[in-house]
Amino acid sequence: MFIDYYIILSVALFCIGIVGVLTRRNAIIIFMCVELMLNAVNLLLVAFSKMHHLTPPKKELAAVAGTDGQIFVFFIMVVAAAEVSVGLAIIVMMYRNIHSVDVNFLNRLKH
């Protein structure tokens, strides 16, 4: 399988996430779009981690080349899980204060 297909798929998912962040007003959906962008990056990292297997740099590295990429994906998932717990707590607090999750009401820093 060509790496190009994976790159285009990941870029498309990332751009869908960006369009969602730019066009939606609901804070929860914006947050979900950020998750989608993280997942697009993860998919690309996994695809790249399997790329140099056919021409590894050294013979003894052939078995484990690309492991680092998948470990990175694992740590990205760990950080994303921590981020979601704090972010959702912030959204709940925002809903409790202004009774809405619309980001248009969060413009007090503007004035």
Partner: peptide, 15 residues
Amino acid sequence: EVKRQFTEVKTGDIG
């Protein structure tokens, strides 16, 4: 540079 390079599917045990 990565254009037209192959990624390995279905095989390999690093995952």
